[in-house]
Amino acid sequence: MTPIEMTTTKDLILPLKRIQWRAQISAYLFLLPALLIFTLVTWLPMLQTVLFSFQTVNLVKPSVWIGFQNYVRMFGNPVFYTTWKNTFEFILLSLLIGFMVPVLLALMIHEMRRFKSFFRTLAYMPALVPIIVALQVWRSIYAPEGGFLNSVLKTVGLTPQLWLQDPDIVKISLVIIMTWIGAGGTILYYLASLSEIPTEIYEAAELDGFSPLQRIWFISLPLVSSRMMILLIMQIIAVSQTFTEPFILTQGGPGTSTMTPVLQIYNIAFLNSDIGLASAWSVSMLVVLAIFSIVYVRLYNRKEEGDRN
């Protein structure tokens, strides 16, 4: 061991370390814009939502801590329960009306030898259009006087309905729009999973004397069912956030029959400027959606494992 040898080893190690540091700096320079922007518009707001919910927020003066008062006010307001009851009904209706439609349409589109991409594009069209524009058109379709739907009913001799003004019908009217908008994306998803099923399975079943409908029932549906569970949860999460349809078409009415939590958060924050209370509502929303998201992630992981095996 001579001193000369010592310095050579040091010389070898030092530049290596320096290069690693430089690599880290470079790695973080690439990440910097994303980290800055996510902190600003996502991570910080998430944290603040929780903090605000315990405060009286004043945008000019400093905010005051008030403990659980916002939550007491939220739980003491009957509208809170109404909005969640409405959401629950929206979810039930959307599953009833909208859950099986995309599965069945995807199965049918999958059987098309020609015009497959034509039907696929058609189904996806509603999702591409600005939602506001789509709602304007639906407003005209649902219009009580001279609206398309009532004109059809009159022509075939049925009583016209108040599609957006009758509390008994308005939820169904809105859910039809939601299904119309959402079906296309779901159909694309099912089509992708249907095309992953090896055709040999169908061939074997055909040789064993299974009819086409039996093959759909015993092969296609079970194989897409793991995705159906995921889409079920996704649909519940999406419907829980219903805002634009009632905001534009009904303002939550008639009465409070289409009032939803997000619409109420909007009203409390931006019409009443009560940001603390709105944040308490947001936290309640966050808790509910987080539960569904955890279920979703679990199902998704299980599906990924299933795909790998």
């Binding site: 991570w43 910080l44 958060i265 909007y266 947001s282 955890i294 979703y296």
Partner: peptide, 21 residues
């Protein structure tokens, strides 16, 4: 961030954009 929908923290996001910290 994918699991938590944007509406849940819309209000503080708006407050931040209205007056950047």
């Amino acid at each position: 961030t994918l699991a938590i929908p944007g509406v849940a923290y819309l209000v503080p996001r708006y407050v931040i954009l209205a007056n950047l910290p």
